[in-house]
Nucleic acid binder design. Structure first.
Length: 598
DNA sequence: TCCCATGACTCAGAAACCTGTAC
DNA sequence: CGTACAGGTTTCTGAGTCATGGG
């Protein structure tokens, strides 16, 4: 790196930290003031211990230049990319062989896959949202930091780097294999078994069975909280209102958070500023939830809920707690009084899976194609993801791919228009036919001209390419190449075709290249009509789903047995919906029969 | 008895990686 | 038939939930 234009000769310990930042100068993190401050504070501490060997004094972040480090990492990436596939394969095999001893463990005599067997490498803490500690240096973890949890009387594994374990315990009441305390927030980090392990599978099954059990109690719970919405005791009334939100809106419980964390909220920790009243009965929620993801929802609510929120907000400041007499502990204890193990998060699982089952039952076309059924499935999946507010960043290529789709749609409409005009040219009576009246609204003369230009350009290019290829082939076969005039003739033909099309513009008449009887044209229009319709739907779907993440609900909230049973009932291969990892995550769900319901 | 820190687990989106497909 | 790249899959680790236990 450079400082104030001067090259800095850093010892490896300091160079590593500078490199962590250098690799990130092109990211959003490097534009964040908190991130930069935290990084630089920690960098200075490291520099104090490992000062530049050439005596440069680093004191100001603004004078640091990490560009050369960034370029270095980019070059490394490019080098890696440019390896031949054979080289990549060898490199991967070598890495796999090195890691093979650590990927599995023995649990009760069975071989089980370990999830995160690599310890987290050092780096800069990538806190989400306005995390006050983002950018802080996350230290390298050494054996001395790690506690391992193994069976009694089994040999103690040797660390793969020099050092000795912090501690070796034999605790069979927990599922972790190793843990350490991370230095930035003081949180525990664990090595667990993989998602497909027996332990995780068992726990997943329990989770969904618990959610199903809620079905037996949910009516009573709803009756009770609806009554309690009017309770004279404000604590009870607040709790009932909170339960209403957790149940109807699938909000998270909302534990209290500290000052050293990002300011995010859930149900119990909502502040007055997060909910506004919109007469006569609408509430507008606007707050940052888990991962600092915005929750925005305008929703019509029960009249009494609306009144309650007005009462709870009365006389309070925006930054005051909306439910000042409710906390997650008390709420969960209340829920547990209905059913053993019932907590706020069970409602999310319950409502997600039940909604999904219901949408599938009502929305799957019995006689549709597999694709149509898959569309119904994805739609149901999306509705659940929206309910749970599972978001993603809009894909970088979204606008581009929408543009391409719009072009394609215009192309289809153009084709349909030409077919209609062909009918009109044959018999003017078709103009009166309702079916062919609909004008292509987004196909004005300009659009048509552009489209035809594009088509022409493509055809010309294609013709040239074909000509070249034919000649190459001829040369290979030892034949004479075609004369240049053949190509010229062809190009001329194309030009003439488009000249004709240009003349047709505005006449509502078209002569097909190959003559067709009117029935055939009508048939073709119908087919095209269908194609346009489904394509439009596809476009709308893509636009509506650009910010919705489907994976989270599929992995965590939707009982996999719903999917398996649905697949069996509708003859859809499960592999179309579950990736390899999901297949290994849900082996316990695969045997249900087709009429299983959540 | 309550409250609050601790600990262990699930759930979350981004980034890295891989793969199928359109050209 | 190779290649580029878009979109799907897997990995990574941060951010929640919630039970427990000790003061």
């Amino acid at each position: 790196m450079k400082y104030n234009g001067q090259t800095v000769d850093l010892p490896p310990e300091a160079e590593e930290v500078a490199g962590f930042y250098g690799a990130m100068i092109d990211t959003e993190h490097a534009k964040d003031a908190t991130f930069n401050k935290n990084f630089f504070d920690d960098f200075l501490k490291i520099l104090k211990k490992y000062p530049p060997k050439n005596g440069v004094k680093i004191t100001k972040f603004e004078l640091c230049d990490f560009r050369s480090m960034f370029d270095h990492f980019e070059a490394e990436k490019t080098k890696k990319k440019s390896m031949t596939s054979a080289e990549k394969k060898t490199a991967k095999a070598a890495k796999d062989a090195l890691e093979a001893p650590y990927t599995h463990c023995t649990l009760d005599g069975r071989k089980e896959k370990v999830g995160n067997f690599r310890v987290e490498p050092p780096g800069l803490f990538r806190g989400r949202g306005d995390h006050p500690k983002k950018g802080a240096l996350k230290l390298r973890v050494r054996p001395e930091d790690i506690t391992i949890n193994i069976g009694k009387d089994v040999p103690i594994p040797t660390p793969n780097v020099p050092g000795t374990w912090k501690e070796v315990v034999n605790d069979n009441t927990v599922t972790w294999l190793a843990n350490w305390v991370e230095n930035v927030n003081g949180n525990y980090k664990y090595v667990f078994l993989a998602a497909g392990s027996s332990i995780k599978g068992q726990s997943d099954w329990t989770k969904f069975e618990k959610a199903r059990e809620l079905k037996k109690y949910v009516d009573q719970i709803r009756n009770d909280y609806n009554d309690a919405l009017r309770n004279k005791n404000m604590g009870e009334r607040q709790r009932a209102t909170a339960m209403y939100f957790i149940d109807k809106l699938a909000l998270r419980a909302g534990n209290e958070k500290g000052d050293d964390e990002a300011d995010t909220v859930g149900c119990c920790s909502l502040r007055c500023e997060h909910v506004t009243l919109e007469p006569p009965n609408k509430l507008v929620f606007d707050f940052l939830g888990k991962d600092s993801i915005r929750y925005y929802n305008e929703v019509a609510v029960d009249e009494q809920v609306y009144k309650n929120i007005r009462i709870f907000k009365n006389g309070k400041n925006p930054e005051d707690e909306l439910f000042d007499r409710v906390n997650t502990g008390a709420l969960n204890r209340h829920l547990a009084s209905y059913m053993k193990g019932l907590t706020a998060k069970v409602f999310r699982t319950y409502n997600a899976s039940l909604t999904f089952q219901d949408l599938l039952d009502r929305g799957t076309p019995e006689k549709g194609t597999v694709q149509e059924k898959l569309n119904a499935y994805n739609h149901a999946n999306r509705m659940v993801a929206i309910l749970c507010n599972h978001q993603r960043a809009v894909p970088k290529t979204h606008e581009q791919s929408m543009g391409k789709m719009r072009d394609k749609l215009r192309g289809l409409k153009y084709e349909r228009m030409k077919l209609r005009h062909a009918l009109f040219a044959i018999d003017a009576k078709y103009k009166k036919d309702k079916r062919y009246k609909e004008p292509e609204s987004d196909l004005d003369d300009d659009a048509i001209a552009t489209h035809e230009d594009n088509l022409k350009a493509k055809e010309l290019e294609k013709a040239e390419k074909k000509f070249q290829k034919d000649n190459e082939k001829a040369a290979e076969d030892g034949k004479e190449p075609q004369d240049e005039s053949v190509l010229k003739e062809k190009l001329k033909e194309i030009e003439a075709d488009y000249k004709r099309l240009k003349k047709e513009r505005g006449t509502e008449k078209h002569v097909l290249k190959r003559e067709k009887p009117t029935e055939k044209i009508e048939e073709a229009i119908d087919k095209l009509e269908e194609k346009i319709k489904t394509f439009k739907l596809q476009m709308e779907d893509r636009e509506a789903g650009k910010e919705v993440a489907l994976g989270t609900s599929k992995i965590n909230y939707l009982d996999p047995r719903i999917t398996v049973a649905w697949c069996k009932e509708h003859g859809v291969p499960v592999e179309r919906l579950f990736s390899k990892t999901l297949m290994t995550k849900f082996p316990w769900a695969m045997e249900v029969d087709m009429d299983w319901k959540f």
